[in-house]
Write a protein that binds this DNA or RNA. Structure first.
Length: 294
DNA sequence: AAAAAGCTCAACCGCTTTCTA
DNA sequence: TTAGAAAGCGGTTGAGCTTTT
């Protein structure tokens, strides 16, 4: 399969985005919506590849992005989700309203991976950024990117408030195939595709999905023949009766909190069961040893 | 005060998955 | 059925900023 030529195309801008580019992209998306990334730059008058535009929008320009410090609750959720999902950043991000996969990935790599590495727990990453700290490079670029971004934020009105909390509808997770060109219909943020590493979307929603509390995903809802759900429904998004659209901020918060509590409860249950089994095994072992002794 | 080391995060790269003709 | 295109994802890079020496 041929690889799509992307930013390697001659004549396309790369590197930090300018305020003008941000404005062009934001304006275009506000008018025409997300999607069609390939053709978007041309239509929007940008000398960028579609991939770059998509990334910029998803990770920085989206109005619903919550920037700033990760709260302890969020951190806790990230840790738990990571222990369940591994480095499935987009799925983890899907459970953290307003957070991007890139942000969570960065946060994990800079804060949490080290912590768990030191603790030697199973949270340690399977691969990837366990690399050695890089040698500092000499500064040969006069651009002050962070400053530029901050200035741009001010100009373009991007939400950079550290403490402001926004309530978002959970991101839809596509269980089955849907036409890509319908992406605008589904309020897709970073989206997600298929299942990887043996973890299905159903598993995930079984853990923390909106309104679905059983874990794992009830087997009678899953068509195991092709690994897809019976009715090709959208979890968290439109289907489920589009009820999410009717949710108030308070309901959303309540739901998220409930899901989180249920996740904790489930984990505790599992731990307890394991403990009980261990004790049982120990008793059997003891009695066996005793019988040998006699 | 200056240099070095460490941290952060936006952006890019390359691969996989999904869709379509 | 298949090849190419499009989209999405996770890993990695690197420049600016902050902290330490």
């Amino acid at each position: 399969m041929g690889r799509a030529p992307c930013c390697s195309k001659v004549g396309l801008h790369r590197g930090p985005w300018t305020a003008r580019e941000d404005t062009l992209l934001t304006n275009y998306i506000q008018t025409h919506g997300e999607g069609h990334w390939r053709s978007l730059p041309k239509k929007a008058g940008l000398l960028r590849c579609g991939k770059s535009c998509r990334l910029r929008w998803m990770n920085y320009l989206r109005p619903d992005i919550k920037r700033g410090n990760i709260s302890s609750d969020e951190e806790d959720l990230i840790i738990r989700l990571h222990s369940l999902l591994g480095n499935r950043w987009s799925l983890i991000a899907g459970r953290l309203p307003g957070r991007t996969d890139n942000e969570i990935k960065n946060y994990w790599n800079t804060h949490l991976s080290k912590r768990f590495k030191n603790q030697g727990t199973h949270h340690e990453k399977k691969s990837g950024s366990t690399r050695e700290p890089r040698k500092r490079k000499t500064k040969n670029n006069n651009q002050n990117r962070s400053k530029a971004n901050r200035e741009r934020d001010h100009q373009t009105g991007v939400n950079v408030t550290k403490t402001e909390t926004k309530i978002h509808l959970p991101k839809p997770i596509r269980i089955t195939s849907l036409p890509r060109n319908n992406s605008l219909e589904y309020n897709t943020v970073s989206g997600s595709s298929g299942s990887h590493n043996g973890v299905t979307e159903g598993d995930i929603n079984g853990v923390v999905g909106t309104g679905i509390v059983d874990f794992p995903w009830p087997s009678d809802l899953v068509d195991h023949q092709d690994g897809r759900d019976q009715d090709d429904f959208i979890v968290n998004g439109c289907d489920l009766g589009c009820e999410s659209q009717l949710l108030t901020r308070e309901n959303m918060l309540e739901r998220l909190y409930e899901e989180y509590l249920q996740l904790l409860k489930k984990e505790e249950q599992v731990k307890e069961e394991e403990k009980e089994k261990e004790e049982e095994d120990q008793i059997q072992l003891d009695s066996f040893a005793e019988s040998l002794w006699v």
